[in-house]
């Protein structure tokens, strides 16, 4: 990616003065650029004119009351919404100079570069080793057995799971505890070596200790990956995210540096939400 490119340029600014950007230093490279994104479930509009820039090797948190469209937006980034037949999308989601929604964009190739971790851990009904090695093998990232072993070990180490499972790699992934399963899913995602990892409330089904482990993990993973996470938990956003976007009723109300947003929110709605008046 072109690191000299400014985060924003004048012509990128949409007509409506949406608070979609941050007057940030240009040290962060752009990862995904979203312009005028609209999405409908049948006739219900779920996302309205979203504009947002997601920065490389940062954690961006999407917060907001339930049903505000944050998960739907997340799934636009790797086109998981394609799986729902009634969904219809308009607008630009740009990554690496390509329009993600373009006809000629292969959604399989996109997902190869934009991995995802889900709300509930969903390891495959295979061994721990197979869970991690399956996708890299299919993607031809590794072919030799030794490389594969190495890759699995590296991914499991990166996910902070290696020490716990190194002696039982052949046991089924489902035999692990919930928190371990979720880390296995993260290991599975990073083994593909994506650019972006999307996390859809990755800790909502987990206990507090597992949650803390995964939050630590996110902090470490951002050295290698761009992370976009949805959370219903504001404290979590404040703890792990560099940037935070506040969603409300399908719109982005405010998007800013997390510290700024939580100390001096620009919008009344944001302030009400983070101070707990609704949500």
């Amino acid at each position: 990616m072109n690191s000299q490119a400014p985060v924003m340029s004048e012509q990128d600014t949409p007509n409506v003065g949406q608070p979609y950007t941050i007057n940030d230093q240009a040290c962060h490279d752009l990862s995904i650029r979203v312009r005028d994104l609209n999405l409908w479930y049948g006739k219900n509009q779920a996302l309205k004119n979203l504009n947002i820039d997601l920065f490389q090797k940062n954690v961006t948190a999407l917060i907001g009351p339930s049903g505000c469209g944050k998960s739907t937006f997340l799934r636009c980034l790797n086109r998981m919404n394609d799986l729902i037949p009634t969904v219809h999308t308009e607008g630009l989601v740009e990554m690496d100079g390509h329009d993600v929604n373009a006809k000629k964009m292969d959604e399989v190739a996109l997902r190869r570069r934009v991995g995802m971790v889900f709300q509930k851990p969903n390891p495959f009904p295979k061994s721990i080793y197979e869970n991690v090695s399956y996708a890299p093998r299919m993607h031809d990232i590794v072919s030799r057995k030794a490389d594969q072993d190495e890759l699995v070990e590296q991914a499991l180490r990166d996910a902070g799971l290696w020490n716990e499972v190194k002696d039982k790699l052949q046991e089924p992934g489902t035999s692990l505890s919930g928190g371990q399963q979720q880390r296995l899913c993260i290991a599975r995602a990073i083994a593909v070596q994506p650019d972006v990892i999307l996390m859809d409330e990755p800790t909502s089904a987990l206990d507090p200790i597992s949650t803390a482990t995964i939050e630590d993990l996110m902090d470490r993973l951002k050295e290698k990956f761009t992370i976009v996470t949805v959370t219903h938990n504001m404290q979590q956003a404040a703890r792990v995210a560099d940037y935070t976007a506040f969603f409300h009723l399908g719109e982005i109300i405010e998007y800013n540096d997390t510290k700024v947003m939580f100390s001096t929110p620009a919008k009344k709605k944001t302030e009400d939400y983070i101070s707990g008046r609704y949500g």
Binding site: D96, D106, V108, A109, L110, R112, M138, Q193, D195, K224
Partner: peptide
Amino acid sequence: MSHTFDDISQQLKHRHR
């Protein structure tokens, strides 16, 4: 570690078939 979309698409052709 980045692969471009074009690289990946090339490799994917066979799998899509």
